[in-house]
């Protein structure tokens, strides 16, 4: 039924057809899972498209424009990407960010695994208490958790003043703060729960009879872990790695508070372009370049670790 015909009808008839249309639509709605599915997810999809897809499209467009003093030149060029490729500072900081985040991911997952294993397999009662204990510190302000490390590692900080008070040192140790090591330590602490929880969930899901079968078939504890438990926990390890790697590459708070000049990361460069340097197109190009780098590395990582798991199992 066309809209024109509907509009031309008398009031009563149009109410009737509207009713007919509504019930037909209602029947169709109930019959087709596809229509129901798309209708119910449409508002969420709309938000993601309007507040993420469109802005990122615009970000890409911006990255091909150039800043011309106060104006923006809208001719499409690759100048910004050329600048990023030419200046070593950008490449250095990119490599450093990826390196720092990679180490943070590795360290956090390695440290978290035994704890997740302990809670999943050894704790029988009060599992929930353990999980709440693990997550509790992460419900406090992220900013303050990072800042806590600044007051711990600082020149006049907790460690230095504590050691001086105890008479262990005469001069404060200056190597603690403002370097990549401080960034790695702080991030490994700040993101710990994001590694523990996914690994715990995948360990918890493992069917215990598989482990018994491995033991019955003569596998020792180590072999059983390597051949059965570890491959089956891989989904959790991969999830943990992705959930930590992606946000930490783009972290701004930690490098700014504890990184110092030698611990600067991508987010600091991006933020500078959007504030002091006021070169939004270059900032956009840096954002896009880092986003593409991060996504590529994450995809490669998932692909490789899946292949590796298949080989072991």
């Amino acid at each position: 039924m066309s809209g024109g015909a509907l509009a031309g009808d008398t009031a009563g008839a149009s109410a009737q057809t509207a009713d007919g249309w509504r019930s037909r639509w209602g029947r169709l709605y109930l019959q087709s899972e596809g229509i129901r599915g798309w209708c119910l997810s449409a508002p969420a999809l709309f938000v993601v498209i309007a507040a993420l897809a469109v802005p990122i499209g615009l970000l890409v467009l911006f990255s091909f424009w150039t800043q011309d003093y106060v104006d923006i030149d809208t001719t499409l060029t690759l100048n910004n990407y050329q600048t990023i490729a030419d200046r070593t500072i950008y490449l250095t900081v990119f490599a450093r960010s990826v390196g720092i985040s990679g180490l943070v991911t590795l360290l956090t997952v390695l440290l978290a695994y035994p704890l997740a294993y302990y809670v999943a397999f050894d704790v029988t009662r009060h599992k929930m208490v353990w999980l709440v204990l693990i997550t509790l510190p992460f419900w406090t302000s992220y900013l303050l958790r990072v800042f806590a490390w600044k007051i711990i590692l600082g020149y006049d900080g907790v460690i230095n003043s504590g050691l001086a008070w105890l008479g262990v040192i005469d001069e404060p140790l200056s190597f603690l703060l403002y370097n990549p090591f401080a960034v790695i330590l702080t991030l490994a602490h700040a993101w710990a729960a994001f590694a523990i929880l996914p690994i715990y969930v995948s360990l918890e899901k493992i069917d215990r009879s598989l482990l018994e079968a491995a033991t019955d078939l003569g596998d020792g504890p180590l072999r059983r872990f390597w051949r059965v438990t570890f491959p089956l926990s891989m989904p959790g390890v991969i999830a943990a790695a992705i959930v930590i790697f992606i946000p930490t590459v783009g972290d701004y708070v930690t490098p700014t508070l504890v990184g110092g000049p030698s611990g600067l990361m991508i987010a600091n460069l991006i933020q500078t372009q959007f504030s002091k340097a006021n070169d939004w197109p270059l900032g956009a190009a840096l954002s896009i370049a880092s986003m593409v780098t991060v996504t590529l590395i994450a995809c490669l990582f998932v692909w490789f670790s899946k292949r590796a798991t298949e080989k072991i199992a």
Partner: peptide, 15 residues
């Protein structure tokens, strides 16, 4: 969930 938050921030800023 899988985008660095700074990207969300700057892209919304531009939009």
């Amino acid at each position: 969930m899988v985008l660095p938050e700074i990207i969300v921030g700057v892209s919304l800023l531009i939009l």
